[in-house]
């Protein structure tokens, strides 16, 4: 019963909504643009160089890995580019080239590919790389130190470092509006609050991101910071300060909702975000590190498999009373 023309046989369904990983990733990059452009406009060519080099490096590592393993090229899906871009956004504009090469290597190869590639990374690759770099090269990630040659017309000290070193009294010089509009020292793509929020909202509305995680994270940061602030406002900064400084917003919209290292069920997403927010403020306020986002997110990534076991009962599922 074979006919001359060969038809394609596949399993149902034969329709698809047309979404693709690459589209998704390109949208993430588009959403990140406002913050990145602001960073570039502030820090100039070095910032552009960092972002571009990070993206290029990330993609090169991905290609090299695919070649070594003889796998089909996965560079077209854009995930390496996104990883590179996000890592670039988290770096100071003065980051040296080798740091970026090393960071992208960790993010792409160690953080993702050795686990089987996209979808299998247990932790957020850019943050994993960043964590390793931060504990190794404290000098470079001391923004006060690395950005001291810049004078952009606003206070050029890193707000969180000031908070850590001198307490809330020292942060009066930062206006909330300035912080929100990116008039603060920090990593290339993490200072422009408005841009990040716009980008995040874009992703949420287009359905490329899980709003539950972002919002619960922001709520977690806000509430925890507020509680600390209320308990002793002389020691702990206010919630808005925590929202608009450091990596908070970039984490909320671009890092935390990274697909494979975050939960996908509703309640776990809320817990995940809220706990990450809480941990962030805890580390900032009583921990050893200046910005808690990096480790807070990684810690919650670890909990992801356990959290994701909390899920609604499937319809029809029989619960045995054993």
């Amino acid at each position: 019963m074979s006919s001359q023309k060969k038809l394609v046989v596949a399993h149902a369904p034969y329709w698809h909504d047309g979404s693709k990983i690459s589209t998704k990733n390109y949208h993430i990059m588009i959403a990140a643009l406002p913050a990145v452009l602001m960073g570039i406009s502030q820090y100039g060519a070095p910032a552009l160089a960092v972002i571009a080099f990070a993206m290029a490096c990330a993609m090169i590592w991905e290609v090299i890995w695919n070649l070594i393993l003889g796998k089909s090229a996965s560079i077209g899906d854009g995930s390496a580019a996104v990883t590179g871009m996000l890592l670039g956004m988290l770096m100071p504009a003065t980051a040296p080239w080798w740091l970026i090469a090393l960071g992208t290597f960790i993010a792409i190869i160690v953080g993702k590919q050795i686990f089987g590639g996209i979808g299998f990374n247990p932790l957020n690759p850019p943050l994993l790389a960043l964590a390793m770099l931060v504990i190794s090269f404290t000098g470079i990630f001391d923004f006060n130190e690395s950005l001291r040659h810049y004078d952009l017309g606003f206070v050029m000290t890193y707000p969180l470092a000031d908070l850590k070193a001198f307490g809330p009294d020292a942060i009066g010089k930062f206006g909330m509006g300035d912080l929100f509009m990116g008039r603060q020292a920090g990593a290339i793509g993490s200072t422009f609050g408005l841009g990040l929020i716009v980008g995040g909202l874009y992703l949420i509305l287009r359905g490329y991101m899980r709003w539950e995680i972002s919002l619960s994270f922001l709520a977690g940061v806000f509430i925890t910071a507020l509680l600390f602030n209320l308990s002793d406002s002389a020691k702990y900064a206010g919630p808005l300060f925590h929202l608009f400084t450091g990596y908070t917003l970039v984490a909320a919209f671009f890092l935390l909702p990274e697909d494979s290292s975050s939960p996908a069920n509703f309640i776990p997403m809320l817990i995940f975000g809220a706990m990450a927010g809480m941990m962030t403020v805890l580390i900032r306020n009583i921990g050893a590190y200046v910005d808690g986002v990096v480790f807070a997110v990684l810690l919650m990534n670890l909990c992801n498999p356990l959290l994701d076991k909390i899920r609604p009962k499937a319809i029809g599922k029989v619960v045995e009373n054993a």
Partner: peptide, 24 residues
């Protein structure tokens, strides 16, 4: 020779479920 082009799970047992696989 094949009787059709198969697209789907790259697994013999999965392919077998569709008309015992694409092989003639």
């Amino acid at each position: 020779p094949e009787k059709f082009s198969y697209m789907g799970v790259n697994d013999c047992r999965a392919a077998y479920l569709l008309y015992a696989g694409a092989k003639d």
